[in-house]
Design a protein around this nucleic acid. Structure first.
Lengths: 232, 232
DNA sequence: CGCCGGATTGTCAAGATTTGACAGAGAGCC
DNA sequence: GGCTCTCTGTCAAATCTTGACAATCCGGCG
């Protein structure tokens, strides 16, 4: 399995580097942000597996940050606090932090906690996610996301379009006949083959709206295939 | 009343025997396991009344063990840790441990704690609590609480509404199909899919009454999803 | 090679259908 | 009676389907 990505949110460059070093040594991929705003952007774009959060950020209260993150995901968060303030600690845990570390800390201990939290949270969520190129499909939440230069955006798909996209992303490069797609994506319906074309067109348009063009190719006489046609 | 059964999970045979001896002398029945796996089997089979858990197991992290136990019961657990690590303690307590003892310990003190915990939890509700955003659900006591600016308020939910909320808070961001919700929240009933809508509407209204709006989103053609939609 | 014609696919908009929100009523149950 | 659950009906909005027409593809032929 690909190693977990840890987002280090810390304004003290020295501490951040130290943490990154130890985390990298332990086999984690890392990324960092020195402000809450930047961190939120990273969360959006990179979808880290865990966040190491310094409570004392320059631009944003750590708790505010946590609240914002929690509004859109359940990424585990470990608080790092300057003071050994047990009220902070309790508040943090209550808001949904998964662990708590106080400065000064032993980097190895932090790494150990990261490992423990990841182990604990892994497998909890069904969270089946399929990706291809710049497209991500979250099966259990029924959300499709496109990665654009501006970040990750949720695609506003209808149920049918979503099902189509799931088929495609599950088997990129496979050519689907219209009948198969009808079966798989428009159940309980005796629509015509051509109806598929319309849904495909709609899906194409929505993908294009978010910069994901050229994905769905028509295979004359057969049906459709998903996968970006590389150059030529 | 038949005496309580205490499961001692400890890999150090000497310590285990010591504990068993003292517990037996205090009138408890005991059983022991030296690995997490064996312990889980005992929990399944014997349904002990309390677990004395050494955090440092050979095969399984104590927290992992606790999580697994908590997945299927609310048996009170007392942590026994080698180090006096207060974060471990917090983590343990947050996960649902009922008390915490550090080595080296006084066996009599342990027995006393066992007695205290049993007394406290006997007949009384356990305390599995799930939270998301401003909503807290206490499974055992069947109470749902909303955090408003004015403080915490208990939501006056019906049984069905409560079960719905539990489903949602357990898996925020997941989209539930109506059929799943029917299954999970309206057992022993062959109600129509549309009935779910009614309960959802009622739940929404009650949440809104306490300032918790925008939580439940309809996913057209699929079902419902829980999670406040923030502009991000 | 370039053009033609049939077949296939893309696009669009209108109409049909489905869906979700909600209010209200009947039934069962303390 | 009061409460809860279930079902029905209505309305508006979202979605699906269809058919017409334009655009494109592809093989054959001059």
């Amino acid at each position: 399995m690909i190693s977990s990505l840890v987002l280090v949110v810390e304004d003290d460059e020295e501490i951040a580097s130290l943490l990154e070093k130890y985390l990298a040594r332990a086999g984690y991929r890392t990324t960092k942000a020195s402000t809450g705003l930047a961190a939120l952007a990273h969360v959006q774009r990179l979808q880290p597996d865990l966040i190491l959060l310094d409570v004392g950020l320059p631009d944003m209260d750590g708790f505010e940050f946590l609240t914002k993150v929690r509004a859109q995901s359940t990424i585990p968060v470990i608080f790092v606090s300057a003071m050994d303030d047990s009220t902070d600690k309790l508040l943090g845990l209550k808001l949904g932090a998964d662990d708590y570390v106080t400065k000064p800390f032993n980097p190895q201990e932090v790494v150990a906690r990261v490992g423990a939290v990841l182990k604990r949270t892994r497998g909890v969520a069904g969270h089946e996610v399929i990706r291809h190129d710049g497209i991500e499909v979250q099966l259990d939440s029924h959300i499709a996301i496109a990665s654009t230069e501006k970040g990750r955006v949720e695609l506003p798909l209808t149920a049918t379009e979503f099902r189509l996209l799931v088929c495609f992303v599950r088997s990129p490069f496979k050519t689907f006949e219209r009948a198969s797609l009808l079966d798989a994506c428009m159940p309980e319906s005796d629509a015509l083959d051509r109806t598929v074309d319309t849904h495909i067109a709609n899906l194409r348009r929505k993908l294009a709206n978010f910069g994901q063009e050229g994905y769905i190719k028509a295979i004359r006489g057969i049906g459709y295939r998903f996968a970006r046609s590389t150059g030529v």
